[in-house]
Design a binder for these strands. Structure first.
Length: 889
RNA sequence: GCGGACGUGGUGGAACUGGUAGACACACAGGACUUAAAAUCCUGAGGCUUAACCGCCGUGCGGGUUCGACUCCCGCCGUCCGCACCA
């Protein structure tokens, strides 16, 4: 029995030589090599290793069901990098897991009557198979899903750490409430003021919710962006804008006691432009500002106005088109720099309660919104900054506010100063004055960033480990009672939170007083799950959330790869959470940034198709006729005309996806890998086309044929190098130069250029194969072996097959990256362009050792050069060795 | 409105810190092999002019710096993305 299997094994293992034009059967061979890798455990990463480490990570997927070719690009890129680094002698960690909590599972439960867990784990099983079929060099032993009890148990510990440290807290906050689905909606789930599923008008509701104190780290998160020099500039900029630091002043304005509401004597305003204080013409407060509420208490019309503002939609369209509206409260304030100057206090719909203090002073001459507002309600407009070149006597504000540089006017002691000095002077002046025992003005740094609300009124998420007790308040679940597990028997037949309506789950005794109490029924935002999974991969089975030794060995992630859509939230939350858990006691050490290098890859796009009745059609339901302008589509079965729509990112909803299984079954994984890496720069989108795929497939076959031919024609290389003729030398130079450049391109993630370089070398190799010369066989074989090793990170199965064909019985996945011979990287002759007056006229091939004088003389002797000179005297000759000669006449 | 990126043949794109623009691929055309097709192989090609060479033009448009600009600077035009009443 054992003998028979061994025999079968051998026949399967040895690739059959190609006689004539036999094709390489990728799908069959790929399965074989995947099995070989698995048996050899090539991709298992050890936490105890002498080699330098390299942690390569692609953003882990949400298990939505199936993987399509669009998803595969991200993993392919990471895999090429991981395989390359492994070959370069690194101990590589390349793990995979599942971002498995979230709403779709609950929706599926509602629609299909399957439990979220069942749905999720079934999807994971299917997608794991798909990823494995791509031949990714992943250490599957470290795999986990965030919905695994073991994972979210550790996350509950982290939550309690943060709570102890004061980095998690509870407060009341507004949410978008869907009154039909009884659920909280994220902003992006509110479309035109209505719930995206129910269509009901969304209400604003105050709920007590849990928050993480990310604002505590606002300054650090902003500052540290400077250290992330291997992140895209774009992402750093987006984060910086999101954090939105501004430097300004808090200014306290005394209310005119004549009609001030009881108990309120001043209004605090945040401004970044205290220099324009003399241009103030009114104060405006948010409809939710305490002063507005107090004033509205005995003013029904004002109350009505405030209510109307609150109803004003939160949708983007509404905010954009919303008119600036206000209501005069009748209250008056004293100007801080002129006691006799009284200004009106308005309630305005454009003032946000949750930025700054919810109150502003309006300076119409310097701010467009304030100007629009002042014009509408006929409030004074007083210019305070005179733009350069304007005359102070005649200058007036028209329809446009002036926010540029200039010199101060109409501003008392600030007159003549530039705005910056005026700013400083006002800071000094107001700082020295007091109101109600405090300074009238003080410097204040403000951030746009808000604390991170993590409460979700959902079932399928990590339960927040808190017990609410009437007498003890919010009590942390004691460590020995963790995890707080999701009840398996929840019901999903109606909207609302299944945890909240579960008959028994939430009723517990208080850990402190043993009295009756209830569990927190909110679960955590799934962004919490993804904020530390990369830490957990370093020790997925540890009893504590973080294994200090493993974390400090592997982190930071050396190369992180994912979509630009996560530029802000996921990446910012992760940067915060990493610091927070470290400061709360997890053994991460001194490290503050989790991701050393970040790469944001482009999407795979595809044409979209729509049937006559407006339904999306998938590519395999459509037949394309003709090409160019005559290109038309019809339905594959009914032959009805089909509209070809715009090229868009592959997505399930538009059905413009190509399923990975179908693709791999037909073409093989290597073709898919090669295709997504070719042509387009990796950070840019790549368009999926049938012809592009055919091109990739052709190359797979061509490479295989070429290697096969060389394997047949040339003997194994002798250890001693023969003497080479010109062809042999040229081939070896090409091979080693390619090796040098492909390595660099992979290192720099320029996969499309690496692919092009490999095509180029393949062309050289196959044309040299037609020639004969002493010693050439040796060079051909060397070239073939190098080619195989170079394509290995991108097309690992084909490379193994070729490697075996070349007579090796080792796994290529275990071979080190070949080293280029430095002597072959430098030519002994060089070809340089010769210009006359900056225009290229000819080129010159000359010994590398030639002196400047020799080059100059040779250049001037060229016929096209003398012709272009037309007898004119040469003024100057610029010779840049190895680059160019420019003759200036 | 604010911020950013990009613009190169029929197409995707290449060109290292300024130094032969169009590598490589796709599509196309011609040829070889074949009874034929597919597959494969060879050849050609930025545009204009030309029989061909030569020549001229050419990296969105206009200017500038430089011996020399796809690359750097200034001003436009266009496309895409992010943020958006943030005081």
């Amino acid at each position: 029995m054992a003998l028979i299997t061994a025999a079968i094994e051998r026949t399967v293992k040895r690739p059959i030589s190609l006689m004539g034009n036999e094709r390489y059967n990728a799908p069959a061979r790929e399965k074989h090599w995947q099995q070989m890798w698995e048996e050899a455990g090539v991709f298992t990463a050890s936490n105890n290793d002498e080699r330098p480490k390299c942690y390569v990570l692609e953003m882990f997927p949400y298990p939505s069901g199936r993987i399509h070719v669009g998803h595969s690009r991200n993993y392919t890129m990471g895999d090429v990098f991981a395989r390359y680094k492994r070959a370069r002698g690194f101990n590589v960690l390349h793990p995979m897991g599942w971002d498995a909590f979230g709403m779709p599972a609950e929706n599926a439960a509602m629609e299909r009557k399957t439990h979220p867990a069942q749905w999720t784990y079934a999807n994971i099983a299917a997608m794991r198979q798909q990823l494995k079929s791509m031949g990714l060099s992943i250490d599957w032993q470290r795999e986990f899903a965030t919905c695994d009890v073991n994972y979210y148990k550790q996350q509950q510990k982290l939550f309690l750490d943060l709570l102890k440290k004061g980095l998690a807290y509870r407060r009341s906050a507004k949410v978008n409430w869907d009154p039909v689905d009884h659920t909280v909606l994220a902003n992006e789930q509110v479309i035109d003021g209505r719930g995206w599923r129910s269509g009901a008008l969304v209400e604003t509701k105050e709920l007590t919710q849990w928050f993480f104190r990310i604002t505590e780290y606002a300054d650090e998160l902003l500052e540290a962006l400077n250290t992330l020099d291997q992140w895209p500039e774009k992402v750093r900029l987006m984060q910086a804008n999101w954090i939105g630091r501004s430097e300004g002043m808090l200014v306290r304005w005394a209310l005119d006691p004549a009609n001030a509401p009881k108990g309120i004597s001043e209004v605090e305003v945040y401004t970044t432009r205290p220099d324009t204080l003399f241009g103030a013409s009114f104060l405006a407060v948010s409809p939710d500002h305490p002063l507005a509420l107090a004033a509205a208490a005995d003013n029904p019309k004002l109350k009505e106005f405030c209510d109307e503002c609150r109803r004003q939609g939160t949708s983007v369209v509404e905010l954009e088109s919303a008119e600036k509206k206000g209501f005069d409260t009748g209250l008056r304030v004293q100007h801080p720099l002129d006691k006799d100057w009284l200004l009106p206090v308005w309630v305005a719909n454009f003032v946000l309660m949750d930025y700054g203090t919810g109150a502003i002073f309006g300076c119409p001459s310097g701010d467009q919104r304030d100007l629009d507002f002042a014009r509408k309600y006929d409030l004074p407009v007083r210019p305070v900054i005179l733009p350069p070149g304007e005359n102070a006597e005649t200058f007036a504000i028209g329809d446009e506010a002036v926010d540029g540089d200039g010199s101060m006017i109409n501003s008392d002691f600030l007159d003549g100063l530039d705005p910056k000095s005026a700013f400083e002077k006002v800071v000094d002046r107001l700082g020295a004055m007091t109101i109600g025992g405090r300074p009238v003005g003080e410097r204040k740094v403000n951030f746009r960033l808000r604390d991170w609300g993590i409460s979700r009124q959902r079932y399928w998420g990590c339960p927040i480990p808190i017990i609410h007790c009437e007498s003890c308040g919010a009590v942390p679940v004691p460590d020995d009672q963790l995890p707080v597990e999701l009840p398996a028997d929840a019901t999903f037949d109606k909207p609302g939170n299944p945890l909240d309506r579960h008959p028994t789950w939430k009723h517990v005794t208080c850990p402190k007083c043993q009295g009756p109490a209830v569990r927190e029924t909110d679960t955590m935002d799934t962004f919490v799950d993804s904020s530390w999974y990369f830490v957990r991969f370093t020790a997925p089975d540890a009893d504590t959330p973080v294994d200090a030794r493993a974390a400090q060995y592997w982190l930071p992630v050396d190369q992180y790869i994912g979509g630009i859509e996560h530029a802000i939230l996921h990446l910012l939350y992760s940067r915060f959470f990493f610091r927070a858990i470290s400061d709360a006691g997890q053994g991460i050490g001194q490290l503050r940034e989790p991701f050393r290098a970040l790469f944001t890859q482009g999407m795979v796009t595809h044409e979209t198709y729509k049937s006559q009745n407006g339904e999306w059609l998938s590519p395999d339901e459509v037949k394309i006729d003709g090409d160019g302008k005559n290109r038309a589509a019809r339905h594959a079965v009914s032959a009805n005309p089909v509209t070809i729509g715009p090229i868009e990112k592959m997505s399930k909803s538009k059905k413009n996806v190509v399923d990975l299984d179908a693709f791999v079954g037909e073409y093989g994984a290597d073709t898919a890998r090669w295709f997504v890496l070719s042509d387009s720069p990796p950070e840019r989108d790549v368009i999926y086309t049938e012809v592009g795929v055919e091109g990739a497939r052709r190359y797979v076959q061509r490479a295989w044929r070429l290697i096969d031919e060389i394997a047949q024609k040339t003997p194994q290389r002798a250890d001693v190098m023969p003497e080479f003729g010109p062809e042999g030398i040229a081939l070896r130079r090409a091979a080693h130069k390619t090796l040098h450049s492909v390595g660099g391109h992979i290192e720099g993630l320029r996969f499309n250029v690496a692919v092009a370089t490999l095509y180029e070398f393949t062309n050289v190799l196959s044309s040299t194969l037609q020639k004969s010369e002493d010693g050439l066989d040796w060079a051909l074989r060397e070239g073939a072996e190098l080619l195989v090793q170079m394509i290995a990170p991108m097309m690992p199965h084909l490379a193994e097959e070729c490697w075996a064909r070349l007579g090796y019985n080792t796994l290529l996945a275990k071979q080190p990256w070949p080293v280029a011979e430095p002597a072959l990287l430098v030519d002994d002759v060089m070809t340089i362009a010769v210009q006359v007056n900056g225009k290229r006229r000819d080129e010159l091939t000359i010994a590398r050792s030639a002196s400047k004088e020799e080059i100059e003389a040779a250049a001037l002797a060229l016929e096209p050069v003398t012709r272009a000179l037309e007898g004119k005297p040469v003024k100057k000759v610029i010779v840049v060795p190895q680059r160019i000669v420019n003759v200036v006449a």
